[in-house]
């Protein structure tokens, strides 16, 4: 089994493991952020470029570095490979550039966006972004398209990660959607519209890293950090029935799939569980959910989640010549 060293930490992984997967095995201090890669979807990743890292040593036979940064989600490890992520100023600068690109045409309408508080682009911007934008042109806008009563599409917020495209393709029989147009006017809308009849289409809400696809039944009901997540389950013929209920007082405002520490869905859930079962009596409650480290939802509510250090501080440490990772427990 190949051994790879990432940010000075060595790990042995099965052949075929990507750098990103190996980094996740090492933990959140090492794992790069990912906006398009989704471990539950095949063929995902490679597009957003936020997970880029630098390979400083190719493998045990070839000590040369790779000339360009690589997408860690799509690059398989080789035995003896050495990779830098948070310990490299160059990588952090590269990533900052990518984050800026993702943000220039994003509307930054977080105050009215239901995703705020659990948005991966917010986290990414917080950790790697600048305080001010250098982009002083009109932002790209799309015409609003109604895609039905359950899912709200805001194409303006989309970062074209292709996760929803892959989800629909992989959870439904036969392909009914994809991407229209090209370049920076590419869009997914028309296709989502047609895929919406499928019983699992609601999962596109959970995989969307931004607020482009949100739950219409939850629209403007509450900020997510005012709601309490509770794990629950029910007997469902279509899916596992394992969900997360989001309470405000005694009322269930929203049902989502459970997500792991990387913000990925654990089990796909069906539209019936998601949209039609909003009574507590529909569910057997299991207890408060563990909320992932990066979420503001965990702030003050449940456990004090281990927060990843923001890049600004890491960069400063590096400049001051301090050794890497000063992560405090």
């Amino acid at each position: 089994m190949p051994k790879v060293t990432i940010d000075g930490k060595e790990i042995e992984v099965p052949k075929g493991t990507t750098i990103l997967q190996a980094a996740r095995m090492l933990g959140p201090d090492v794992a790069p952020p990912a906006m398009c890669y989704y471990s539950k979807l095949s063929k995902s990743g490679g597009y957003c470029r936020t997970c880029i890292v630098r390979v400083t040593k190719m493998n045990s036979q070839n000590p040369n570095p790779m000339p360009k940064p690589v997408a860690s989600c799509r690059t398989e490890v080789m035995d003896g490979m050495e990779v830098v992520n948070y310990t490299s100023e160059q990588v952090l600068t590269d990533r900052k550039g990518v984050v800026e690109f993702l943000l220039i045409n994003h509307p930054l309408d977080c105050p009215v966006c239901d995703q705020a508080g659990e948005c991966h682009l917010q986290d990414l911007g917080y950790e790697n972004g600048s305080e001010k934008t250098r982009y002083d042109f009109e932002r790209r806008t799309y015409d609003m398209i109604d895609i039905g009563k359950n899912i709200k599409l805001h194409m303006n917020r989309c970062i074209l990660c292709y996760r929803c495209v892959n989800t629909c393709e992989q959870l439904t029989d036969g392909r009914v959607h994809g991407v229209l147009n090209r370049g920076d006017v590419a869009e997914i809308s028309t296709f989502i519209e047609k895929a919406i009849d499928n019983e699992f289409s609601g999962n596109v809400i959970d995989v969307c890293p931004v607020g482009a696809l949100t739950d219409r039944t939850f629209r403007f009901k509450s900020r997510v950090w005012f709601t309490k997540p509770v794990d629950a389950h029910r007997d469902c013929k279509k899916c596992s029935g394992k969900v997360r209920l989001w309470f405000k007082g005694a009322e269930v405002l929203r049902v989502t799939a459970r997500k792991d520490q990387w913000g990925e869905v654990e089990d796909w859930i069906c539209n019936e569980c998601r949209f039609d079962k909003k009574n507590v009596s529909d569910w057997e409650l299991e207890g408060p959910s563990r909320i992932s480290h990066h979420s503001v939802i965990s702030q003050g509510h449940y456990e004090l989640a281990k927060l990843k250090l923001d890049t600004g501080r890491q960069l400063k440490n590096l400049k001051e010549g301090k050794q890497k990772s000063t992560a405090k427990k």
Binding site: G174, R175, V176, H177, G178, V179, L180, F191
Partner: peptide, 8 residues
């Protein structure tokens, strides 16, 4: 093929 494949 699916119409969608043609549109895209």
């Amino acid at each position: 093929i699916k119409p969608i494949e043609v549109y895209e």
